[in-house]
Design a protein around this nucleic acid. Structure first.
Lengths: 234, 234
DNA sequence: GCAAAAGTGTTTGAGGTACACCCATGC
DNA sequence: GCATGGGTGTACCTCAAACACTTTTGC
């Protein structure tokens, strides 16, 4: 925040910040999870114009005394009826070019991307989101389709240089689950041996010395994420 | 911008967007240029509290009917008395967590990064910025020091995957000038042969078949940037 | 014993890094 | 002729990609 106060007699009306009309600020959230082997997004069906009946990102206006990340969590809690403790949130971009995106009022929208561990959304238990695979989105309100694609692109590029994938997995997971989650996000298959080499290289994983028996095959070892390895090699 | 309208009887006060008090929105700009062989930033000395006498990023409050990028250009024009035609602008991040960053009013700040071609700032002609090498910043107001570093980091990472470097160069340039600009931003020396190979690989440069004579040595060829090559090889 | 997923190494090619000399000019 | 920056090619090394078989379980 820069020097925005004028010396004595402000000629610029925007310097009289207490009297000038202010744009509204909203936060919209791209909430993603892995569901049924697909990357899916939480949407809300609009019940008002504009874009009546279309689906949209969950969003809220920012209160005067509210950090914007709190607005993001509140959007998820009030629109989706979910708890946001421990949910990963990352700011994506701020949309403030188009003056008439919201026809009611000039709105600047800060978009966040959020990741929900798989397994939390099991059925239709209480939450009010509709979930859609990002490859088969319904018609969306505003420019939300572009926003969703930008969010997915961001998550993709951060996959192997950050720990975001573990925000989409349960606490304990197998290497195959880790790989499937990555494949789901990237939208393509990965080589198993190369993937495991790379994962062991960039992630510090704790071998829990346990195995999970499921199905008629060899049980898989369980792991827990410890930390990202420092690969800067400075 | 999501579905923020309530059906009938809004219990959530933030839904009554017309009556609730709104945070102010500001735009601050990290304006960078290459000056005297160093990457330098334009700062303004504050003449009010808080942070009286400290340097700060040029910034302005966003007017109700103004796209935020326009606010960014207006900040540069009114604070620095420069024209912003053709100046590269890229949104960096939006700071809205800290409720008391600006003690006058709750302010959410959208930060832009701007690049000024070298050679435009020649002396002390009219503009009111103070220029500082990013390695030797004066004490800065607010958390502007962190913002500056985030901006420089962003520019660095985009160096060889985008055309931003050409926004810091004049229209016509030599390969040595291109290399020096990159070295200035990265803060380290680059190998001349490897740099030229890489540049020819990622950039489509037009050889102007001209050479610039300067100094007691072989003249250098002049080039013009045409476009980024597509290296995705899909 | 067979179906089904878990687990494991080696080879190859591309791209990045390191490195030294001749060229054209001004003085 | 010498000082100054302009301009060029090769060897090595690292990392990503391709690729197939054995192991352990449930039934």
């Amino acid at each position: 925040m820069g020097d925005r106060r004028e010396p004595a007699a402000p000629k610029d009306p925007s310097s009289d910040i207490f009297r000038m009309e202010r744009p509204a600020v909203a936060v919209d959230v791209v909430l993603l999870t892995v569901l049924e082997g697909e990357l899916q997004i939480a949407l809300i069906k609009r019940e008002d114009d504009p874009y009546y009946g279309k689906h949209a990102l969950p969003g809220r206006f920012v209160r005067y005394d509210e950090p914007i990340e709190t607005t993001a969590r509140r959007a998820l809690e009030t629109k989706g009826n979910i708890t946001t403790d421990g949910i990963y949130l990352e700011q994506l971009y701020t949309f403030g070019q188009n003056l008439v995106r919201d026809t009611r009022i000039r709105t600047i929208s800060v978009v966040y991307c959020a990741l929900l561990p798989s397994g939390i959304i099991s059925g239709q238990q209480g939450h009010t989101f509709s979930w859609f695979p990002i490859g088969r989105l319904p018609p969306l309100a505003f420019d939300h389709r572009d926003i969703v694609h930008a969010a997915v692109e961001r998550i993709r590029t951060k996959l192997l240089t950050s720990d975001i994938i573990f925000h989409l997995l349960p606490e304990e997971f197998t290497l195959s689950e880790l790989q499937r989650a990555c494949e789901t996000i990237l939208g393509r298959a990965l080589d198993k041996r190369n993937f495991r080499k790379k994962a062991a290289d960039v992630y510090d994983l704790q071998d829990l010395k346990l195995s999970r028996r499921e199905g008629a095959h060899r049980p898989a070892r369980l792991y827990r994420f410890v930390r990202l390895r420092d690969l800067t090699r400075a």
